[in-house]
């Protein structure tokens, strides 16, 4: 008998609470725009904060309010932007996929002024003696602030002590770009294969002293490029990704191996031989032209 009593009392309590909650749900109902959950579903859902809003819910609200563009969520990519644009009844912005890239290949190739043993954080390291632990004042410190910032496991410190982006995993959320105190991480097109992996803006001789893999602003790449896509600006070569066709000629021409993909010795020889042959042909042609003019 007792058990029945207990069941009844608890059952009645449950029903009463259920009713109260059901009524409360009606009374305290807040009208939510039906597009809000849809937009949130189209976002990447990583709560990475790359958009600058507190989490994906915040971003969805901002998009709905028109404060953020439909493409605010970089991890969701063009696909997500298109979905959100459809929900919002707007036209999807076109744009190719972009990823992050670390513009440094120094690391263990760079000279060290002293051994830094403080907090393993890049920003902290830059505060010690003006960040002079590594003699290059522009290079990657390799303490992994970007690695800690990445929510997608897409950036890691490579063998040579420089952060490397895994572009398959990268969603271009921008967290690593924010985290890098030296602003070495930039946005590049996913398709791009050739990069100048140096950001040192000092003049050639000064750069040579601090890093074996540095851009010395010699201009070889600029002269080699057939597409006018690489130029030396502020003593460092910069690729115009709109013009670059990924032919890798500049990488082969670079005397310092500062341009990715770094050519093998064999490729380098081949390139030199080809250059020489071209120069000879040019000289022969000039000679022939001169002779012709002389006649």
């Amino acid at each position: 008998m007792n058990i029945v009593y207990a069941v009844i009392v608890l059952g009645v309590m449950a029903v009463v609470f259920g009713l109260i909650l059901a009524i409360a749900a009606k009374v305290f109902e807040v009208e939510v725009d039906p597009r809000l959950p849809q937009i949130q579903a189209a976002l990447a859902g990583a709560n990475c904060g790359g958009c600058g809003y507190p989490g994906c819910a915040g971003c969805a609200e901002a998009i709905l309010a028109g404060k953020a563009p439909v493409s605010a969520c970089a991890p969701a990519g063009a696909e997500g932007a298109a979905k959100i644009a459809a929900i919002m009844g707007m036209e999807a912005p076109s744009g190719e996929k972009k990823v992050a890239h670390v513009m440094c290949n120094g690391g263990t190739n760079a000279v060290k002024n002293f051994e830094y043993r403080g907090v393993t954080d890049c920003l902290a390291a830059t505060k010690v003696c003006g960040g002079d632990a590594s003699a290059c004042r522009y290079g990657c410190l390799g303490f992994g602030s970007c690695v800690a910032a990445c929510k997608f496991d897409a950036i890691h410190i490579g063998e040579n002590g420089v952060a490397v982006v895994d572009k398959e995993k990268c969603t271009n959320c921008g967290a690593c770009r924010e985290a890098c105190p030296r602003k070495l991480i930039v946005e590049v097109p996913y398709k791009q294969k050739v990069f100048v992996n140096c950001s040192n803006k000092d003049r050639g001789p000064a750069v040579t002293k601090v890093c074996a893999n540095s851009c010395i602003a010699c201009g070889m790449c600029e002269r080699t490029c057939k597409f006018d896509a690489i130029h030396v600006v502020n003593n460092v070569a910069v690729i115009d990704y709109d013009k670059c066709r990924n032919c890798t000629m500049c990488a082969k021409a670079c005397p310092k191996g500062a341009i990715e993909p770094i050519p093998t010795a064999e490729e380098k020889e081949k390139f030199k031989a080809a250059q020489k042959a071209a120069a000879e042909r040019k000289a022969a042609a000039a000679k022939a032209a001169a002779e012709k003019a002389g006649q």
Partner: peptide, 23 residues
């Protein structure tokens, strides 16, 4: 039945408070 009843009450209460605050 205290434990069971209290769990029920607390769960319902939190739900209610959430709805109330949201509005």
């Amino acid at each position: 039945m205290q434990t069971v009843a209290f769990i029920l009450v607390i769960a319902a209460l939190v739900q209610f408070v959430e709805m109330f605050l949201k509005k």
